[in-house]
């Protein structure tokens, strides 16, 4: 039962995190990360080849804050609505902390006057810790299935 509660709690973290981004609430999104954290977006191609490059790589919280500031204040981004579908959340290691967790994601995009399209599909490969009693991401790695991204990837996933 404890395990189920924990899984439910992890699921809630994933759901809230996705909702914050869908709603453009980037500051709130930052709140789901631990004080010591990292965030990166990779492609499966690079991982399979053993290449370290990431499409987005924040190795600490400060970099994540700067990325959000850049999105909000300094980037030219064509307006769009994004919708994240997160599914299949699972505990790979736990219930002892830090947890290793995974989930699949699909992100849809809708531009003004255009029908909705599928943007990217992939897997979250994360480390979750408990900080001040609340679950937070200590590490979030997004791995895209495709090696090719449509247009640009301005927002975190």
């Amino acid at each position: 039962m404890t395990h189920l509660n924990l899984l439910f709690e992890v699921q809630a973290l994933y759901t809230e995190c996705a909702a914050a981004l869908d709603e453009g609430e980037f500051e709130r999104w930052l709140g789901y990360f631990a004080s010591e954290c990292s965030y990166s977006i990779h492609t499966k191609e690079n991982i399979d080849r053993g290449w370290p490059i990431a499409l987005m790589s924040c190795t600490n919280r400060g970099m994540l804050i700067d990325r959000v500031a850049a999105v909000l204040k300094s980037s030219f981004i064509i307006a769009r609505v994004q919708r994240r579908i997160v599914s299949g959340v699972r505990l790979r290691e736990g219930p002892e902390f830090p947890l290793r967790t995974q989930a699949s994601f699909a992100v849809f995009e809708t531009f003004t006057g255009e029908p909705s399209t599928l943007f990217v599909v992939g897997r979250f490969d994360d480390v979750v810790c408990r900080e001040d009693g609340v679950l937070k991401f200590a590490q979030r790695r997004c791995v895209l299935d495709s090696s090719i991204v449509p247009n640009s990837l301005p927002y975190p996933l």
Binding site: I41, P52, I53, A54, L55, M56, S57, C58, T59, M63, R67, A70, S74, S75, F76, I77, I78, V149, N151, S152, L153, P154
Partner: peptide, 21 residues
């Protein structure tokens, strides 16, 4: 080199603007 790749590519802090244009 890996950190500075943040400025380039589809999620680039600089090239991102260009892609939209």
């Amino acid at each position: 080199r890996l950190l500075h790749a943040n400025f380039f590519g589809p999620a680039g802090l600089v090239t991102g603007d260009d892609i939209e244009i």
